[in-house]
Simulated assay, not measured.
Amino acid sequence: MRKCIRCGCEMKENCAVKIEGAGYGIVLSSDENKLFGGRIGKPKVAICPECGEVSIYLEDLDRLN
C-alpha cells in the first residue's frame, strides 16, 4: 500500500503509463545506446484519489543491480 506524499491518503496502485493515441507504454532502460538492451522494466503508476498526485515506481528492483 502506497501513501500519497502530499495528503497521506491511500493511493490506487498498479496503473500504467500510456502515450495518448498509441497502444504502447514506456519501458525503462539502463543503456540509451541499445535499442532493446539494458531493459529495467515497465514502470507502474499509483494515483491519489483525493488530490490527484501521481507516483511512478518499479515493482521488480532486482534488475537495477
Rank of each mutant, 00 (worst) to 15 (best):
K3C: 07
C4Q: 10
C4T: 10
C4W: 14
I5M: 07
I5G: 02
R6L: 04
G8N: 06
C15N: 15
C15E: 15
A16F: 13
A16C: 12
K18N: 12
I19Q: 07
G21K: 04
A22N: 13
G23V: 06
Y24Q: 05
G25Q: 01
I26T: 08
I26E: 09
V27H: 08
L28D: 01
L28G: 08
S29R: 14
S30A: 10
N33C: 03
L35F: 08
L35Y: 06
F36I: 06
G37Q: 04
G37F: 03
G38I: 07
G38M: 05
R39Y: 09
I40E: 01
G41I: 11
G41W: 08
K44Y: 13
V45T: 09
V45E: 08
A46W: 03
A46N: 03
A46D: 03
I47N: 10
P49L: 08
P49H: 08
G52L: 11
G52I: 07
E53C: 04
E53F: 06
V54M: 15
V54L: 15
S55L: 14
S55W: 05
S55P: 00
S55H: 11
I56D: 06
Y57A: 02
L58H: 08
E59F: 00
D60N: 09
L61R: 05
L61Q: 06
D62I: 09
R63I: 06
R63A: 11
